[in-house]
């Protein structure tokens, strides 16, 4: 695992990855459930509850992941 990514086991659900974006205003956590569903938790500065939670299927997560990683090319 790369630096700045922290793992928390969630028994029966899966794993949560907390990502240090090095930013003082935004922070995300990704929950990977055992059934493949991903929950993207988005936190904003100064709020203890997430400001958005986006639920994605494995397929949708792959798409978003490709876009984020810059490996998606439209023909």
């Amino acid at each position: 695992m790369g630096k700045g990514i922290y793992v928390q086991e969630l028994p029966g659900i899966g794993k949560r990855y907390d990502v240090d974006l090095g930013s003082n205003t935004q922070r995300i956590s990704v929950v990977v459930r055992r059934d493949g569903t991903r929950d993207l938790y988005v936190f904003a500065a100064g709020k203890d509850d997430p400001v958005a939670v986006i639920e994605m299927s494995e397929e949708q997560a792959r798409k978003v992941g490709a876009l984020l990683a810059g490996t998606y090319f439209s023909e």
Binding site: E9, K47, D48
Partner: peptide, 16 residues
């Protein structure tokens, strides 16, 4: 202060 939340070390966590 950055998270604006009470925090604690997770139990059984692998912090890398």
């Amino acid at each position: 202060y950055i998270d604006g939340a009470l925090v604690r070390e997770p139990m059984g966590a692998t912090r890398e």
